[in-house]
Amino acid sequence: MFDQMAHKASSWLTAEGDEAAVVLSSRIRLARNIRGFTFPPYADPETRGNIVHFVRSAIDKSKELETGAFVSSDDVTEMQRAFLIERHLISPEFMRDQNASGLYISPDEKIAIMVNEEDHVRIQSMSSGLSLMDTLNRAMRIDDDLANSLEFDYDTDFGFLTSCPTNVGTGLRASILIHLAGLVLTKEIDSVIDHINKLGLVVRGFYGEGTDVWGNLFQISNQTTLGRSELDITESLEKITRQIIEFENKSRDRLLTEARDEIADKIWRAYGILRHARVLTSEEVMNLLSAVRLGAALKILDMVSIATVNKLLILSQPAHLQRYMGVELSPGDRDIARAKLVRDTLAELP
């Protein structure tokens, strides 16, 4: 399974769907626990083992989850775990020191279910582009399917009960991954982020909580989960996202009218380095790819598609690179291999 995945990008990053020039992906996460069992942070190995068993049989019975793979934490190496994190299928903490956890992945990687993360069940649904409603509906169908076999912890006042009080109620986190290269270049990004925060949303870097901004990629999600319906939370994120896209597009237009040569130069230089460099670090690749992605979106670079850039964002990360090469590499060798992967991918293009 891992070998097949190493050669292609996740299907939720194919640059298809609405607003794909700016929005990379939409994501919905639902947190659920099974009634009568201690939550994972405090559960003993036996309870954790039982939970994996229950959820696995519920997945087996589900029509929505008929095909796909279930990976147990016992069978996952540290390198494979890093690979799953890079693919955004699991959180950085998942399967780290605790055993008796598991992961379901659908064949198209649009659904991933973590068992025994912070909650017993974490349903994740992902789509390319801005497609929050479809992504929500898919997550809801899976939730219904699992609820046919599992009795979830629920309180009529508090809603769905979760280990962390910040997830109680709907257990829903709706988020989008967005490329705001224009707003960063025009230096308007600070005021836009300020505006987003005031609307009760959270902005993070590419890898979630506490991460730096690499490649001008931002994750935007809802902060609160209780007191509003799933539809309400998701619709409001979609509405605000459309507003941010408008800001981003305006800044891109302005760059084109006011500084066309400078922007084109920046984009072509980035492309030149990617096309010919012999050593590239992950951070440098992310930042150069950001410029090339902008170039593709603005039709300044017509030989590179946004889908290719998205693919390189995932495949150039350390664990993917090593799986792609089939050997473990030192950080220095990785930078050389990364430069080769990027050169080869860009050279393959017509």
Partner: peptide, 8 residues
């Protein structure tokens, strides 16, 4: 959350 009543 600014609320303690589930509406979802």
């Amino acid at each position: 959350h600014g609320s303690n009543l589930h509406r979802g």
